[in-house]
Amino acid sequence: MLSYLVAIAIIGGIYSLLTLGLNLHYGFTGLINFGHVGFFALGAYASALLTLAGLPFAAGFAAAMLIAALVALPLGLLAIRLRDDYLAIVTLGFSEIIRIVITSEEWLTGGVQGLPGIPRPFGGLGVGGAEYAYLGLVVALNGLAFLLVHRLAASPFGRLIKAVRDNEVALVSLGKDPVGVKIRVFMIGAGLAGLAGALYAHYITYLSPEQVIPLVTFYVWMAMIIGGTGRNAGVVLGAGILVLILEGSRFVRDLFPGVLDTEMASIRLAIIGLCLVLFVLFRPRGLIGDGVER
């Protein structure tokens, strides 16, 4: 049982890292990113391909963050010129472009056949030990990301971030550069998503384009909305609830055998939809948000 809980915690931790990145984008700068899964995919494939080529895991993880952040640069430059609603659609389109490139460039990504046999770290610790070590890694990286975001928010740069979100015009009149700030934040958040992708790739050990669809982005948004924007603890909580909803249906099946079987996918989808609508309507700050109404 414990080991199964460990597996759930690892998946939850990966979602939590993704949500931390998204929270940095939206919660701290107001940039609306609906292409989060694109950065996740870049990180996952980058780290998988490098480690499959024999490079160490550290190099894979570093490359995952770096590539996601670098791709975020031109997108960020475009993003800051666009209206909110256009930005949402452009980023969504961006993640689809990434997915289509992964699907089409078979020589590199294996295309629709996917990438099997991605190495998993901590092989020397035995089956059980490797799992715990991996969870440790996921938790540690979450902690680091948590601290990073926290430190960013408390630093002079962070005050700038908050100022950008709250009043961009005033900031410009003070001679600050909100564009540079936004772009740097956008890149850091994308890097976190890339890291989450690397963690996912080395845990599941198999990647295919079907795993990087826009639905993942919507899940992450849901986690953020439930938890509460702008506050990291809320983000982690939201990711936990998301995994509970996704995985909870197994227990429902145990409790009510036979019924609901094929309808389960639809019911899961409906519950996620309902959560989104109800939280937006009645609890827009999430369970623990920073109290800023958006």
Binding site: D85, L269, G273, V280
Partner: peptide, 26 residues
């Protein structure tokens, strides 16, 4: 949701999309 941010309405519409699709499936 009138008077709320664009994002709030957008997210609600995603939720509604999921609910409608699930209902059609069911």
């Amino acid at each position: 949701l009138q008077g709320r941010s664009m994002l709030a309405v957008l997210l609600a519409s995603i939720g509604l999309a999921f609910i409608i699709r699930a209902a059609v499936f069911l």
